Computed example of a mutant assay.
Amino acid sequence: MQNTYVLILLSLLVACTKEKNTDLTLSTRPVKVVKVGTLSTIDRTYTGTVEAEEFSILAFKVAGTLTSLPVEEGQIIPKNYVIARIDPIDYRLKYQTAESNYETAKSIYERTERLLQQNATAVQNLEIARADYIRATSALNIAKRTFGYTQLLAPFRGLVEKKYVENFQQVQVGEAIVRLVNPDKLNVRFILPETAISVMQIPKTIYVQFDTYPGRWFQADIKEYIYSSDGSGIPVTLRITDPDFKPFQKEVYPGFSAKVLLKIENTISDNFIIPASALLFENNRYYIWLVNPEQMTVQRHPVKVLFFEDKALIKKGLYPNDIIVTAGVADLKDGQKVMIQHPNNNL
């Protein structure tokens, strides 16, 4: 009989404990919330660099010693400007020799041709003279072209972005002398963190700002980006598309720093941006807690998510004016009563 009383007492204690735990679990819980549709935009700013879309690394086609290098980095030069010269003496002598040989071969050929017309020489002699004349003409053209290679000319109007050599230095064929860029066709390049790669899939507006025009933003779009495997981020190249940029372009050059602003609006084609802290991940799915403002209870609701750093883009599962919990989501239960604390409508 005593054992029976003990068992009854233990059962009552367990039942009371369960009831107490249940009451604690479903007790009213204070929560922070936001209302869908009143969330702010995602603005992310990065530092970029102005780059030329067109460039050329210029080099000599002949070897020699530099005798002139009258350009400096950052200098804008016109088309056909003489960027550098190498000592032309040897090449001038070869040109003069070829020119002399050409004049001699030409004279012999013309004289032999006249003699043949007078039947004073054989056809074979004319053929020999003609062959010598052709070889001399070819050698003169080569010598003239080679002599011209002792000057390095700008192939287009451009900015000297980098000098690779100094004056009076011995240079070889194909050795880089300067890097010339086209200042009229500019891009902006920046590194996007790997944690923000999903932004490439989100509709957005992109702006760039240059140090020469602080406070002035110009619209741009993505020209290309490359996935990086070394963890250093994702190089993104932007093309400036703003028609208002053209009058300001003359004061923006390759190498200048720039600010890049990515602006993602809060509602884009029924997509909504929420804090990542509002998400609950269970059973390989993401959920949010919807607040019923009349009953002041919460209900778990599945959503389709695209992450962007500390924010999340909800592509499916939310509607305007939905109220969602943003903190303590792991401790809530379906149907649990909540008390809203300090509503926050700004991310």
Rank of each mutant, 00 (worst) to 15 (best):
L280S: 09
I197V: 14
V160L: 08
V82W: 05
I197F: 08
R135G: 11
V208R: 04
F308G: 00
T195K: 13
K311T: 00
E251F: 11
A327Q: 14
I226G: 09
G158E: 02
I142K: 14
N3M: 13
V82R: 14
N3H: 12
D90P: 00
E103G: 01
V298K: 03
Y164T: 01
I234K: 04
Y225Q: 11
V171A: 12
I264K: 08
I273S: 02
V34F: 03
Q172V: 11
E127K: 12
K61V: 07
A122H: 07
I288G: 00
G148K: 06
E175G: 13
D244C: 03
R44V: 10
S228N: 15
Y287W: 12
K32Q: 09
E51W: 04
R114Y: 03
V303K: 02
A122G: 08
A258I: 02
L69C: 02
D184N: 15
P88G: 12
A59G: 13
T237A: 03
K61T: 10
F210R: 08
T22W: 14
L9R: 08
R216W: 06
N321F: 13
S232K: 15
N344M: 10
T212C: 04
V62S: 15
R145T: 12
K315S: 14
F168I: 00
S107C: 04
V62W: 01
Y253D: 05
R135F: 07
I57Q: 10
T67A: 10
Q96W: 03
D184W: 11
D23Q: 10
V260K: 01
R189I: 08
P302Y: 06
A59T: 15
P235T: 00
R92M: 06
K263A: 07
G233I: 12
I202L: 13
T212Q: 11
V173K: 15
